[in-house]
Simulated scan of single mutants.
Amino acid sequence: MADALISPAVGGVLLATSAAAAAYATAKIKNELGDKKIPIMAVAGAFVFAAQMINFTIPGTGSSGHIGGGILLAGLLGPFPALLTIATVLVIQCLFFADGGLLALGCNIFNMGVIPTLLIYPLIFKPLLKKGITTSRLTLASIISVVIGLQLGAFGVVLETLISGITALPFSVFVLLMQPIHLAIGVVEGIITASVLGFVYAMRPEIIQSSEQRLPLAAEVSVKKPLIVLAVITVLVGGILSIFASAYPDGLEWAMAKTAGTTELEAEGPVFRSAEAIQGATAFMPNYDFPNAGEEGSGIGTTVAGIAGAALTCLLAGAAGFIIHRVKNRNAKTT
């Protein structure tokens, strides 16, 4: 979401809500990270950053979509580390690449992070695996969870614009466009999520099992192979495939264009100007390209942005996991 889609009040409330959810997730993390889950947290975050750069075309609509990654991360890490990881992805996108508004950052974290990791994963994904993890159950759980999570996230966008009083996006028309297009996007993301989780499960089932049980990986379990494969895929996706991402507007932009006749609404006021100024100062590669790339853009800029963003995500997500793990361990030893 861009800042123009919400009021400062809604942005502030959702930022506080998302910050509270992140604090809650940090507090709830016990020993599930362990020394072996921290590198998975880092590489999985980088993978989601890179994967979000790939917009895939939705046939017959003139629209495109990209994965959210919340359920994918929850399946690999568990719900609480997953929320912190997706929040890291969204903060990096916002501050360094001007993707999503700074005022709307809380909304984006809530819609794409809190809903899938703290609501959908425990209430839908895990119950579907209650009888045991198999490839077929993992596939079913992934697709159903992603579709429902994306539907709720899309509806959250509509509600946030409604409460903000964005009259250019009337509720009835906007919701009738947002939900179907995000249903189609959800099906594709669900298949991608199922494929990645299925691949990891086939290679190291302990990763998925430990996340579902919120337990650390045993010392004898090697995660080297899946990490190397995910890292290589991340570089290929962020550095090469991102150049060939669909040029069609994404689901939100498509729904906005159909409703308001434009994908860019204007926002006026000191709060919006301040947020824009902060982003302008922090974003070293706005829109995932060099600042002087022009309207046509440059392929090399997209490649550099994909690799740099994935590397930043890997570093910050890994650092967050490391610090939380060390602090929790230290506190446990002193009690």
Rank of each mutant, 00 (worst) to 15 (best):
V232K: 09
L217W: 01
I233P: 04
T259I: 13
A231N: 03
P291V: 02
G238D: 07
F290N: 07
G261Y: 10
G297L: 05
F244V: 00
F199A: 13
A281I: 00
Q279E: 05
T262V: 09
K224S: 08
W254R: 00
G261Q: 08
A257Q: 15
E264M: 11
I191Y: 11
S274E: 07
G239P: 06
D289V: 01
S274G: 13
K224W: 07
Q279M: 12
P249L: 02
S242M: 00
F244I: 01
E264P: 02
L217R: 04
R273L: 10
Q279N: 10
Q209T: 03
P270L: 08
F244P: 02
S246W: 09
M285K: 10
T234Q: 05
I300L: 15
T234H: 06
E276F: 03
P291G: 02
G190E: 11
F272I: 06
E220K: 12
V235A: 14
L227R: 07
P291W: 01
I207N: 07
S298N: 11
S242Y: 00
V235E: 05
T263V: 15
M203S: 07
G239C: 09
L236A: 14
A231F: 12
K258T: 03
T282G: 06
M256K: 15
E220Q: 14
E253L: 06
T282C: 09
P205M: 01
A257H: 14
T263M: 15
L217Y: 04
L217I: 02
S242Q: 01
V200P: 11
A202E: 02
P270A: 09
G294P: 11
T259K: 14
A267K: 14
E253W: 00
G238V: 09
S242C: 00
E268F: 12
F290T: 00
K224G: 05
A275S: 14
G190C: 06
G261E: 11
I192P: 06
A218S: 12
A257G: 14
G198T: 07
T282N: 03
N292V: 01
A202K: 14
A247D: 08
F244N: 01
W254F: 12
I192N: 04
G190W: 05
V200Y: 07
G301S: 05
E220L: 06
P270C: 04
Y288A: 04
I207K: 06
A245D: 00
I300S: 10
A275K: 07
E220S: 13
A247R: 07
A255Y: 12
Y288L: 08
L236R: 08
Y201H: 11
I191H: 13
V232I: 14
V235R: 06
E268K: 15
E206K: 05
Y201F: 15
E268A: 15
E212P: 00
R204F: 02
P286D: 08
L230Q: 03
V221L: 08
K258R: 14
T259R: 14
A231S: 13
L217P: 05
P226K: 05
V196R: 09
T234I: 05
F199W: 04
V232Y: 07
G261V: 08
R204A: 13
